[in-house]
């Protein structure tokens, strides 16, 4: 029997008001143990108030090889940025 535990990706919320951020990965037999191990490995100094663990195999990622075409739709839409619009300097609060 293979004793190799699956890989889990770990996300930690540093404090209330912040997003969970990816901090690394670890091996654990199940989700509950992954959470406990994540606490011991990644939050030994109060680095977090909440932890998510996700099986690494469950993550779908965009491929860097197709980086340019994949993000191209946003590339030519400068009008989505406020700086695209010229407003006279003397108009306040805009």
């Amino acid at each position: 029997m293979s004793t190799s535990w699956p890989l889990w990706e770990v996300f930690v919320r540093g404090k209330r008001g912040l997003n969970h951020v990816h901090v690394g990965s670890l091996h654990a037999p199940d989700a509950e143990m992954a959470l406990r191990n994540a606490r011991d490995v990644y939050t030994r100094r109060n680095e977090g108030v909440s932890i998510w663990v996700v099986p690494a195999t469950e993550i779908t990622a965009s491929s860097p090889d197709e980086k340019d075409p994949f993000f191209a739709p946003a590339g030519d839409k400068v009008y989505r940025h406020p700086t695209f619009y010229a407003i006279p300097e003397d108009v306040p609060h805009l």
Binding site: M1, S2, T3, W5, P29, D30, M33
Partner: peptide, 12 residues
């Protein structure tokens, strides 16, 4: 390691 894996498999 084996016991923890067996426990996880059983619960799954």
């Amino acid at each position: 390691r084996e016991a923890a894996a067996a426990h996880a498999a059983k619960h799954a």
